[in-house]
Every structure is written in C-alpha cells, then in structure tokens.
C-alpha cells in the first residue's frame, strides 16, 4: 500500500506544472524515503530529477517500493480538478494498475477522487556523478525567468558567462544582440533577492533558450534558483522545495562545430 497526503496540495500541482512541458510520461518511484522521478525529454537534451522526501508529507505510508508510470498530460488534467487550497492524497495498492488522487477541501465538505490508469514505462535511468562545479550562481528565480524570457526574443541560444564579479547572459540573432549582467549582491534586505556566486574558475557555456524557458516553469516552487556550471558538462538548474526536496534540471550544452 502506498499513500501520501499533502495538506499543501498546491505544491503538487506546481511540481507537475514544472515538468509536464518537458516530459510526456514518467515513472514516479515511491519508496519509504519519499517520491522521486528521473526522466529525459524525448530528444535526450535535458533531464528532470526531482525528489519529494517522505517527511515533507503530512502522512506517508509506503509498505514496499512501487513504480507509478504515468502519462503526465493526463495527470495534469486530473490535477487541474484540485483547487489550490485542497489537501491532496495519492494512493496506490501494491502491483496496482491504477493510482487514485483524492482532493479534500480544507473544511472536508467536498471530497473528490479520481482514478487514473498507470502505464508500464521502459525508463532509462542515468547515473549522474557528483561534480565539483566551477561556478555556482544563486539568484532570484523570478529574475532568471525574466532573463530567459527576454533573451529568447533575441536568439535561440543563451551564453552564460560567469566570473567572480558577476554573471552575464547573452543572446544574438538576426535582429541584433542582448546582454544582461548581474553583479554579485549578497547585502540585500531579503535573502531571496541575493545574487551569490561561488567561483573556482570562470566559465562560459551556451544553452538552448527553449529548454531554459521550460525549466522556469518551476519558478513558483522556490524564490531562488541555483545554476551549477563547469566547462563542457551539463548545466544544473535547481529549485529547492522548502522542507521537502528539490526539482533539478540538467541541460546538455551547445558546442562549437
């Protein structure tokens, strides 16, 4: 028996919104420690890795590990039926071929349940080695979203260049060029407005705007985003979920031909 209850059901809605652009289907791996998911987009350029720890749920029971393969478009349809203040419970029997979502209003006066068919997915799991990144940038997630949106109007790619002084995002296209520079500023009133750079050596990497824009669908999940970069390895874009886990995206760089 698997059962996970989340009073803050809106969080689950937001998690789904943050991945459904990139993934049509994925397997939610449920274990005693929590729920995790790892999947590449169909072009194998980006990967989503998320983790929701069991202690972040209000009630969590997982008698044995279960893999819940889901069509995320269909899951999103069902999640749309939950109100933002609903309590959401996910339930599945061991070896079941369906999953049940229960939505309760805070006053318990309306209880809805939706049963969805599960899928048997052949998922490739990638081993991601621990890496010491040359540059780690922490910045407001809204700022990152804004920059990705703005620069995708200029070109298809964004060059992210990071030095001790700051981080620069650049794009070039038929109409011209655009650059956005952010200076390091740890001395702000609110922690979430800080731009903090930890640099071992400077890096400059090129990434496709399309994927970066998809990653920013996770913006409502966290006030800050963390970008981890090293030369010629995939970028990691991480949104930390308070007391719960994380949503991470990996993106393969573009390289000079």
């Amino acid at each position: 028996m698997f059962e996970a209850r989340l009073v803050q059901g809106a969080l689950l809605k937001k998690v789904l919104e943050s991945i459904k652009d990139l993934l049509n289907e994925a397997t939610w791996e449920c274990a005693a420690t929590g729920i995790s998911l790892q999947a590449m987009d169909s072009s194998h350029v980006s990967l989503v890795a998320l983790n929701l720890r069991s202690d972040g749920f209000d009630k969590y029971r997982c008698d044995r590990n279960v893999s819940l393969g889901m069509n995320l478009t269909n899951m999103a349809k069902i999640m749309k039926c939950a109100s933002n203040d609903d309590v959401i419970t996910i339930k599945a029997q061991d070896d079941a071929d369906t999953v049940t979502f229960v939505f309760e209003t805070p006053n318990q006066e309306k209880i809805s349940d939706y049963e969805m068919k599960l899928m048997n997915l052949d998922t490739e799991h990638l081993g991601i080695p621990d890496t010491d990144y040359s540059c780690i940038v922490k910045m407001p997630s809204v700022e990152f979203q804004r920059i990705c949106r703005d620069l995708s109007q200029i070109g298809d790619s964004v060059v992210i260049s990071c030095t001790k002084e700051g981080v620069k995002f650049s794009a070039a296209g038929d109409l011209g060029t655009g650059n956005v520079k952010l200076a390091q500023n740890a001395n702000v009133d609110k922690e979430e407005e800080a731009v903090v750079i930890e640099m071992q050596e400077p890096v400059s990497l090129t990434f496709a705007c399309r994927y970066l824009n998809s990653f920013t669908k996770a913006t409502p999940l966290a006030p800050q985003v963390q970008l981890s970069m090293s030369s010629d390895v995939p970028l990691v874009v991480e949104y930390k979920l308070e007391d719960m886990g994380y949503v991470r995206y990996y993106l393969a760089p573009k390289i000079e031909d």
Partner: peptide, 14 residues
C-alpha cells in the same frame, strides 16, 4: 555554428 549535445554523451545509463 553550434551543435546541441545530448545528455547520454555525458551520463551513463545505469
């Protein structure tokens, strides 16, 4: 000109 790399060329399938 730039070409897009794929994640499989960086990470191994386990």
């Amino acid at each position: 000109n730039e070409s897009q790399t794929r994640l499989d060329s960086f990470f191994k399938v386990t």
